[in-house]
């Protein structure tokens, strides 16, 4: 059943990684990605890989799951590596027909590939260990300064929350409507692109109608529950930094500084 899919790929747990403040995880993940992009050094990348492996171990994430998350980007990785290998000028290693493989090309391909893979691993780890709701929470907090420039931070995070709440409901509904139209002989699989697009109307119209109905009812229900926007709102779970967070922040900071140093020194 489609509705059984866990959203945001969150796997509940009680590990060190799960206990961390989502803001800290989000910031560390972000900085990690920046550091990956400003460094290009073997030792630094080895350290980064170690950092990821440690994260996987501590969060008890199955490496299989992580590999699975890499699958969709494999094509992109292969494609950019091939381009890099063949098109970057430099010291030629092998030459055949009109193609040549250069040392620089190989190195760039290697860095690009490692970069993308580690980037995906780091964000996946974040998603696996942080519930969608605490992620939105973290975003709302981190974006709070934008309130000053009139960016509707609270509304934005409320929207995210409601969207996440309703995605499974709408998936389930789409499933039902599709089945109902199939029972009336609808055919979504054959015909040219126009026929197929047209075949979607019997699904999209009911879906829109019901979404409007849901939105209307939800708005009334929210009003009944005294929703008046973000002003004066308190929260059930207040984000608070704990000892774990400080340990993690210091550890990450040292690792990142080391990576940059290694890059500068150029070992």
């Amino acid at each position: 059943m489609l509705k059984d899919i866990t959203l945001g790929q969150f796997f509940p747990g009680n590990t060190f990684m799960h206990k961390l403040d989502p803001r800290v995880k989000l910031v560390v993940c972000f900085v990690f990605i920046i550091v990956l992009f400003i460094t290009e050094n073997l030792a630094a990348y080895a350290l980064a890989a170690l950092f990821i492996i440690l994260g996987v171990k501590v969060s008890k994430t199955s490496p299989k799951m992580l590999l699975k998350s890499l699958k969709p980007i494999m094509f992109l990785v292969l494609f950019t590596s091939i381009l890099n290998i063949f098109y970057i000028e430099g010291e030629v290693l092998v030459r055949f027909w009109i193609l040549k493989v250069t040392k620089e090309g190989l190195m760039t391909a290697f860095y690009m590939t490692s970069r993308i893979i580690m980037l995906v691993c780091a964000t996946s780890l974040l998603m696996y260990t942080t519930s969608p709701i605490s992620l939105t929470d973290a975003l709302e907090h981190l974006l709070a300064p934008l309130n000053k420039v009139k960016f509707p931070v609270h509304e934005f995070s409320m929207m995210m929350t409601i969207a996440m709440r309703f995605i499974p409901t709408l998936i389930e509904e789409t499933d039902k409507i599709m089945a109902a139209q199939k029972a009336r002989g609808a055919d979504f699989e054959s015909g040219n692109i126009f026929a197929r697009a047209k075949a979607l109307i019997p699904i999209l119209v009911p879906l829109f109608v019901s979404s409007f109905r849901r939105a209307d009812e939800l708005a009334t229900a929210m009003e009944c529950r005294l929703y008046q926007g973000g002003e004066g709102r308190t929260r059930l779970n207040v984000l608070k930094l704990t000892k774990y967070d400080y340990v993690f922040m210091v550890f990450s900071a040292i690792s990142f500084v080391l990576m940059i140093l290694l890059n500068v020194v150029g070992i």
Binding site: L7, P132, R165, L218, M222, R233, T234
Partner: peptide, 16 residues
């Protein structure tokens, strides 16, 4: 229901 976790949803009105 507005939230993706039961307790967060129940907390919605008092939060408001």
């Amino acid at each position: 229901l507005v939230a993706t976790v039961v307790e967060e949803d129940v907390a919605f009105a008092p939060e408001n």
